[in-house]
Nucleic acid binder design. Structure first.
Length: 484
DNA sequence: CGACGATACTATAAAGTATCGTCGGTGCCTTATT
């Protein structure tokens, strides 16, 4: 592809002179018509990897996004860049608007939508008539993380891609376990994709495991820690209730904090998010609902009040710290037995066998099995997931599949426990888990709670003042780097 | 499984303790057969 034109668009449209190393390779591969899996840390300019090609390829670029808020953000960002031919095709639209947009899909350069939306017959039909030049799956780890037991439509993307002469597919994510990469390739029907994996090590993030006796000690630790050290920070909790209770305790102790979880009204969620982004709020106590789409680069601390369900979740959440390259610390508060509660939440004691029988019974009676949800026998998520598997295999195998999923989840909790054992360097173990190696020469002095960490050097207010004193002599700077 | 809240219990009363019941993460999408 013509390099000249590429740089012209890059400069004129986006205002950049050059691409970053990873971006260049990814964009060249996309322009060459290859399927691409791009794994880049958040904040490394993922969106440019499809936005730039859109101007060179012509046609319509379809972006599949997991969250409505993410779509809105991207649409606004493109509009600010002067793009008018951009739209989010989702449930926010009125019936009229949706119809109007659907019958003019080809007039858009960027169409953002959800996996669920693609499976509405009318959307599917109209997409088939549109000249798609590229299909992008944003936050593609969702295929692996949500597809199997939460949002099965992520897996159905695979079926859809088989039904037509599809354009190249680009998968973007920051999560790179071998399972995630494998699932992406399989469910996006990729053929010998170009895979770009950026190094996952984040030398400016320090990992600390804090072993405590019980929940009350955790609370005390959090109260005193947030009094001593500066935010901004996220405290991840296991339950919505704990997020709210902890936030109240911190507020009483004089540390202003907010809470965030999926059980809140949309406007309250947006409000907390805005306050955190603007710096009005230093701390947010949140469930794992808080994160994706929160673009804040000066988060200095991510604290886990519970044991995350998988190493991938842990790294994803921790990775939200220190995006600006400044020192950041990730704490995990662990009490013996925490894994039991994580196991419970993840396993959900679903009487799967019973549910499958119920669905089959309804079907053989000629009734609509969806009634089971309406009548309160089953929650919607379980119904959707089981329906997905029952559509493509028999009940016996469905039971096996669900059992395998459960075993896999339990194994990942064990992996998580192994990760936090204080035997060898945490940073090294994390990288090994993701199939990478620790470059010893780049290992920071303050590494992890196994290698040793000096918090006072990292988190106190004093430190911030020192680093901002940019006119200090080299002797002074050396003194700061290597305090006696 | 374990945390937490409500309730009952004890018994010159008040606050500690025992027991029971409840609850626990993540998000799209609902345009129609009275």
């Amino acid at each position: 592809m013509h390099k000249q034109k590429l740089h012209h668009v890059l400069k004129e449209r986006f205002g950049y002179d050059e691409l970053r190393p990873g971006q260049e390779e990814i964009i060249q591969a996309v322009l060459a018509g290859k399927d691409v899996v791009a794994i880049l840390p958040t904040g490394m300019g993922k969106s440019l990897c499809y936005q730039l090609p859109a101007y060179l390829l012509g046609g319509t670029v379809l972006i599949i996004s997991p969250l409505l808020s993410l779509m809105q953000d991207q649409v606004e960002q493109l509009k600010r860049l002067g793009e008018k031919r951009v739209v989010a095709l989702n449930s926010f639209l009125s019936y009229q608007d949706k119809q109007r947009i659907l019958f003019n899909l080809s007039s858009y350069r960027f169409v953002f939508t959800s996996p669920e939306m693609i499976f509405q017959p009318i959307v599917r039909d109209q997409l088939a008539k549109t000249n798609l030049s590229l299909i992008v799956t944003d936050e593609a780890h969702c295929i692996s993380q949500w597809g199997f037991d939460f949002r099965p439509d992520y897996l159905r993307i695979s079926d859809w891609l088989k039904t037509f002469q599809r354009p190249p597919v680009l998968a973007l994510t920051a999560t790179a376990t071998s399972k995630v990469v494998h699932d992406i390739q399989e469910y996006l029907q990729m053929y010998k994709p170009f895979i770009h994996i950026h190094s996952l090590d984040r030398p400016n993030i320090r990992y600390v495991i804090e072993k405590l006796e019980n929940q009350d000690q955790k609370t005390e630790w959090l109260v005193s820690h947030t009094k001593t050290y500066e935010g901004p920070g996220i405290i991840y909790t296991q339950s919505r209730q704990r997020a709210e209770a902890l936030s109240a305790i911190l507020n009483e102790s004089g540390t202003r904090s907010g809470f965030y979880h999926a059980g809140m009204e949309q406007e309250d969620r947006v409000f907390v998010q805005q306050q955190f982004l603007s710096g009005e709020l230093q701390w947010v106590c949140a469930t794992n609902a808080f994160g994706m789409g929160i673009h804040k680069d000066d988060i200095r601390q991510v604290i886990h009040d519970h044991l995350p369900a998988t190493p991938a979740n842990y790294i994803q959440e921790v990775g939200r710290a220190g995006r600006n390259g400044n020192d950041a610390v990730a704490f995990l508060l662990y009490t013996e037995g925490d894994e039991e509660r994580t196991r419970f939440v993840v396993n959900e004691e679903i009487p799967i066998k019973h549910f499958i029988e119920m669905i089959n019974e309804k079907k053989s009676n000629g009734e609509n099995p969806a009634r089971l949800v309406d009548d309160g026998f089953m929650n919607e998520t379980d119904f959707r997931v089981l329906s997905y598997w029952l559509e493509r295999t028999d009940p016996v195998e469905t039971i096996q599949i669900v059992e395998r999923l459960r075993m896999d989840k339990n194994r990942q909790i064990q992996d998580m426990l192994k990760l936090i054992e204080d035997t060898t360097c945490l940073r090294g173990k994390i990288l090994t888990y993701f199939g990478q190696e620790l470059d010893e020469s780049k290992k920071p002095l303050n590494c992890c709670s196994v290698c040793g960490v000096n918090l006072n050097n990292l988190l106190t207010k004093q430190k911030e003042e020192l680093t901002s004193a940019s006119f200090s002599s080299w002797e002074e700077r050396l003194g700061q780097l290597f305090p006696i």
